[in-house]
């Protein structure tokens, strides 16, 4: 299968902090790739490089064989095709849920208000938030806010969805409702790249799990293999620490 999202020797540093050190990774269309690894290993950074929130210093990132890193890239166009959802939701607090979702389709894609709201309501209905459309984000639970944030990303009709630890800020009982949506998206064939600490979930939905270590993909493979029979000592150490924390 041809790679849909490709990382080719990607280097990224913050000053002297060399975070990504020649990272290679291929994501096929309809793949769900889970990035795991210790805190600070660069999972968020990697995702933020894909949609141009962080510039990279060397190497290349391609989507559908088109270069999306470096100079001469129309980042606003790129971001219409690459949706991202953050750990901290980042809904706009001064807008209702509906306006949060319709803002970008209207201002960037030029949809009329009626069309944008119609599509937003369809999305909200699907994720079970239709009755919250006119509420402000601070009236919603964390799980509802994160679902609204996913709807906001989906409203742009992205080809790839980046999910950065989207359940890490949630109370445990709210995690399931968010994961259910991701599961559904995976079943529908959405290409997704997700950083996560939910190993059980990674094992269930991922087509590929990658351990990031020292700025590279230290080991990757299908979840059943990587979790059951890790080859790399780094992977083993990481999985041991996860088990000690009671998360696997």
């Amino acid at each position: 299968m041809a790679a849909f999202v490709e990382f080719d020797g990607v280097h990224k540093s913050f000053g002297a902090n060399h975070v990504l050190r020649g990272l290679d990774l291929q994501v096929a269309e309809h793949d769900v790739v889970c990035l795991i690894g210790p805190s600070g290993c660069g999972k968020s950074t990697l995702l933020r490089c894909v949609n141009g929130l962080e510039p990279i210093q060397a190497g290349e990132i391609r989507i559908s064989s088109e270069r999306v890193s470096g100079r001469g890239v129309d980042v606003n166009w790129l971001r219409c095709n690459v949706g991202i959802v953050f750990q901290s939701f980042n809904l706009f607090p001064h807008m209702t849920v509906l306006r949060n979702i319709t803002l970008s389709p209207r201002k960037v894609l030029g949809q009329s208000r009626a069309v944008a709201e119609d599509r937003a309501m369809t999305l909200l209905t699907r994720i079970g938030l239709a009755d919250k459309a006119r509420e402000y984000p601070d009236r919603l639970s964390g799980g509802q806010q994160q679902r609204a944030a996913i709807a906001r990303a989906l409203a742009m009709g992205p080809q790839v969805l980046l999910l950065d630890e989207i359940t890490s800020a949630l109370d445990p009982e709210l995690v399931a409702e968010v994961l259910a949506i991701v599961r559904e998206l995976a079943a529908e064939g959405m290409t997704m790249l997700l950083a996560t600490h939910e190993m059980g979930f990674a094992r269930e939905v991922a087509s590929k799990v990658c351990l990031i270590d020292e700025g590279k993909v230290a080991e990757h493979g299908p979840p059943e293999q990587l979790f059951a029979d890790p080859q790399n000592p780094r992977t083993r150490a990481f999985l041991r620490s996860i088990i000690a924390a009671g998360r696997l």
């Binding site: 949609n51 166009w77 980042n90 894609l109």
Partner: peptide, 13 residues
């Protein structure tokens, strides 16, 4: 800045 990051991620200039 996360508000800006979210807005820019949605393609807003």
């Amino acid at each position: 800045w996360s508000q800006t990051a979210a807005a820019r991620s949605l393609g807003l200039s």
